[in-house]
Amino acid sequence: MSETKKFMYINRHAPHGTVYAHEGLEVVLIGAAFEQDVCMAFIGDGVFQLKQDQDTSEAGMKNFSPAYRALGDYEVNKLYVERESLQERGLSEADLMPLTWEDEDDDWAEKPSIRVVSRAEMSDLLEEQDVILNF
């Protein structure tokens, strides 16, 4: 397949309460093999997916949050988080997992994957996409 499309995975659900975040992440990881131009967007309660220190041991559920750290290795390194959604929930970027990727074109420099963007910027990003999947 020679055609490259811009894929955006929009995440609007918090983790654990429903399966959407967990199974959505599985789609992103599998989809990475297709070498498309991929990004993720975290809007509304979706920002809770990136909260640091998730520990599901007492709830008896699978903790899939470490898998977000693997995204950089799969070249999924554009994770757009809506600033207004963070603020509405009393969160800041410091509450989020420090996700990074290594830039092959810049001597494998470690760079942050999370980019906090305004609602207006998120709106522009939506318009740029070819395919949008929602989780």
Binding site: K5, V27, G31, L133
Partner: peptide
């Protein structure tokens, strides 16, 4: 089949609609 079928559908189709 696998999740790759979904990604392929996104690549091959003019429009992908999600119902959920």
């Amino acid at each position: 089949s696998g999740l790759g079928q979904l990604i392929e559908a996104g690549i091959q189709s003019d429009r992908l609609l999600v119902f959920g």
